[in-house]
Design a protein around this nucleic acid. Structure first.
Lengths: 125, 125
DNA sequence: TGTCATTCAATGACGCGTCATATAAATTGA
DNA sequence: TCAATTTATATGACGCGTCATTGAATGACA
């Protein structure tokens, strides 16, 4: 039975959903209008920027985000077409790809990150 | 600057995302395989079931979920086609619709809710 | 070394959500 | 009472994510 506990769980879950949707929508709109990229694209840029010095394998990125491998592949496509990152195939294992921010990608990330953090602060507080 | 605070915000946000995606995916798969409905469909059933005695306007539902009006309309479509709910136009205001669970919808909700709560418990603990 | 299994990434078909609009009904106010 | 506005829902075009599959490279091991 445990109906009371169930109610609490459902409330908690709805809270998470609401926070997630509200925040994601706010960031997405802002990034889209100011930088012409979506939240997903930014998140990949952000992950690449974090592993700054080491070049960054797609596989590794996949482990640090809830995104699907397939989704990743398509986001990376878009980012490459937008000139924000470049793909380099790995010498040691030619199945792997290294990703790197282009100068444009680096600059855009720097600016977009400010907006991103500000909106997180506003929505998660 | 506030780089440290920013890191904390980003971590918090990623935690929310991970929890959200992991939980949603788990519930969605389970409901899909056992009851042939998605998480979104279940959530609407759940909301209708909550406003048990009073018939339930779409508008009201919209206020209790982060879903778009458009999304709602389509989910309700699917639920109706699946024979789980019925739409009744309102006499007082013929723009509004009342939603009601069918017997099948009611039974399915009862069973699916057990699964739903169990997975919430498992994932949000 | 040759086969079989495994791993990394890309792709096509498909479903769902979103945006912008449409439709229809109700409300407002001159 | 008749426009103009607002409100409730539906719909079509479109983009993105997912699933299943493919292609290509590597690994395992007899």
């Amino acid at each position: 039975m445990a109906t009371l506990q169930d109610r609490a769980l459902v409330e908690q879950w709805r809270g998470i959903q609401t926070t997630y949707f509200r925040t994601a929508a706010a960031i997405d709109r802002a990034l889209e209008s100011k930088f012409s990229i979506g939240l997903t694209e930014f998140e990949i840029l952000d992950l690449i920027a974090e592993s700054a010095d080491a070049a960054c394998r797609m596989k590794q990125l996949g482990e640090r985000t809830p995104m699907t491998q397939s989704a990743m592949s398509k986001v990376v496509d878009r980012l490459e077409k937008a000139g924000l990152i470049s793909r380099h195939s790995c010498e040691d294992d030619r199945r792997s790809l290294f990703l790197e921010l282009t100068d444009a990608g680096c600059a855009l990330h720097r600016d977009a990150a400010v907006e991103h953090r500000a909106l997180l602060k506003e929505n998660l507080a």
